[in-house]
């Protein structure tokens, strides 16, 4: 139990630290890759919490997603290398206050709620993956299919929005 908490805490701190780096560096590629490693640390945290399938999936998906983010940053930013030390933030005070307030409220809720007895053991990883598959194919099938159709719609919509208009 304690070991699990230690591992989860360690990877969690790594995730938070990389999350802070995202907004503290002025190099855009660094910032995107810091987000990548933050999400990888979140995936490792899932592994520490015995959600093996979700952890591996998170580690796999986020790498591609955030690397694509890096290439878009290089494309669209005026100073992707961060050599000019440009400041690209506004309303800093209000944002800081909102961030701290949001985190404090969430921590307060987490600490003050009585969560009841915690489950001690989760099913084994192979059993978990099987049961998740059955859940996806039976009870939650509609949700999952809706997600699939939504992805397709978003793909088409995003391509249509981004494609260059042909001049006639």
């Amino acid at each position: 139990m304690l070991l699990q908490a230690l591992f989860a805490g360690f990877f969690g701190m790594a995730a938070v630290w990389f999350g802070v780096v995202v907004f503290r560096t002025s190099s855009m590629v660094r910032s995107a890759l810091a987000l990548l490693f933050s999400m990888t640390a979140v995936g490792a945290m899932f592994l520490a919490m015995e959600a093996e399938f979700l952890g591996v999936l998170q580690i796999m998906m986020m790498a591609t997603e955030m690397a694509i983010m890096a290439i878009f940053m290089v494309m669209y930013m005026m100073d992707p290398g961060g050599l000019g030390q440009m400041d690209m933030s506004h309303q800093k005070r209000a944002a800081q206050a909102a961030g701290v307030l949001g985190a404090l409220v969430a921590i307060g809720v987490a600490l003050l709620t009585s969560w009841g007895p915690a489950a001690n053991a989760a099913p084994g990883a192979a059993e978990q993956t099987r049961l998740l598959g059955i859940e996806l194919m039976e009870r939650s099938m509609l949700i999952f299919e809706t997600a699939g159709v939504t992805i397709l719609t978003a793909m088409i919509a995003a391509t249509a929005a981004a494609i260059e208009r042909r001049r006639r």
């Binding site: 590629v29 890759l33 990548l36 093996e52 399938f53 591996v56 999936l57 580690i59 796999m60 790498a63 591609t64 690397a67 890096a70 084994g124 990883a125 192979a126 978990q128 993956t129």
Partner: peptide, 22 residues
């Protein structure tokens, strides 16, 4: 012997791309 080994192979090899971009 991970229970999700086949997926993990792919997850680890995605970082080849991250390494090359870096």
């Amino acid at each position: 012997d991970l229970a999700t080994g086949a997926l993990f192979v792919n997850a680890a090899l995605v970082y080849v791309m991250v390494a090359l971009v870096m």
